[in-house]
Amino acid sequence: MKIKRSDLDWAVTQNILNPQQADALWTGLCTRTEPDAKFSVTHVLYYLGALIIIGAMSWFITDAWDRLHSSILLIVSGGYLLGFLLVGNLMWFKSQHRIPAGLFITISICLTPLFIYSLQRALHLWPHQDPGDYHSFFSWVNGGWFAMELVTLISGLIALRLYKFPFMSAPVALVLWFMSMDLTPILFQGEGSIYEQRKWMSLVFGLIMIAGSYMIDRNTKEDVAFWGYLFGCIAFWGGLTLLDGDSELSRFAHFAINVGLIALSLFLDRKVFLVFGVFGVVIYLYHLSSHLFEDSLTFSIALSAQGLLLVYLGILYSKHHEKIERRLTPYVQKWRPRKTMP
């Protein structure tokens, strides 16, 4: 719970505190805690500039770069990477420049795939097969990208360990998601449908990413787990939803898992699970309305009644939530991430 000066002023009007006590308490709180960083125009400029740089050297890279000689591409990408890393490291120790410093180091992480690609192209060394032009890295699944992803993952984890800047977890989580797809043709060469295998690999990798993010969430004060949760949900939910399930039992199991994601969002206090869970529930309800109950007049009425019941349960919970949470807290609090703890 965040306390504002207006809360103390209200306490004075209610005769809970006198004005002198309110002033003394506010002064003490201000000296004890650092002020919250507010998202301002400065932050927008920082992040927008960083994203433009990242995009320029990754997503929006043109064919002209691939026509460069491999040694020139290696020197240019290595110079960019090293330059952003050194400048970011120098700025990191100046508290007023901590955000741009962290963004510069994040940019260097995002440049790692291009640098490793240039090195591999110069040495003609690929873990699976030559994946082609670099700009295809973000659009085509290929086992040849695996070494680039592995080195990027390692460099990102090292940077997170050294600098603890939450946004650095974004390229780490993204490259893990890419890795889940590009690893499939390496592990299952010529064994069955590659499309089916990728769905299962995506599901398994998503679960691993969510579990890893949970462990990070429990052991860090900084919010570095957000991107892991996001891309973990994308990988897990995408693989789960694309799995072929022709039986009603498998579709109901998919629905139940999505209800579990909604419950998980409450436990972890993470809205990303709520978003994917709700999408899954809506997909199942659409299936019921368009297939099983397409000729039923009562389905919409029954569904509306269930919606009203949920709203009523929400009203009841709002009245008694303190008592319920007080009884549940001793059992679940020790498993919750730090940011959800009082």
Rank of each mutant, 00 (worst) to 15 (best):
S304M: 11
A50F: 02
D223I: 13
E322G: 12
F299R: 00
L316K: 08
I234G: 01
A305V: 03
I257H: 02
R121I: 05
D182E: 12
V282D: 02
L119Q: 03
L274H: 07
W92C: 07
T340M: 13
G132K: 03
K94D: 14
Y47C: 06
I208H: 07
F39Q: 06
G307K: 00
S202Q: 07
R338F: 14
S108W: 04
V278A: 12
F252D: 03
W335H: 12
A235S: 13
S213H: 03
S6T: 13
Y317A: 04
L328I: 13
E149Y: 03
R251L: 09
Y80H: 13
D130E: 11
S290C: 05
F84S: 04
V272C: 05
V172L: 00
Q14W: 06
Y117V: 01
D36C: 08
G228Q: 00
G88F: 02
L82E: 09
S202K: 04
W335A: 12
T112K: 03
I109F: 09
G144R: 01
G55R: 01
L242Y: 13
V141Y: 10
S70P: 11
P166H: 01
L313W: 07
Y195P: 10
D295G: 05
V259C: 04
F146Q: 15
S180A: 15
I99G: 10
Y331E: 09
D246S: 14
P127N: 01
G102M: 02
Q306I: 11
G132W: 07
V278Q: 04
F276S: 01
K164Y: 15
E222L: 13
R5P: 05
N258S: 09
L74T: 05
L230Y: 06
I301T: 11
L8C: 05
F231E: 01
W140Q: 14
I52F: 13
L297T: 10
N142W: 00
M215G: 10
A263S: 08
L285S: 09
R326H: 12
P19W: 02
S296T: 03
G245R: 03
A256S: 14
G206K: 00
E248I: 08
I61F: 10
K199A: 15
Q189G: 11
E34W: 14
Y229F: 08
H291S: 12
L123H: 06
M168C: 07
M91F: 11
I3E: 06
Q333V: 14
G206V: 01
M209H: 04
S250E: 11
A22P: 02
R121P: 06
R121D: 08
G132T: 05
A147G: 13
A305L: 05
S139M: 09
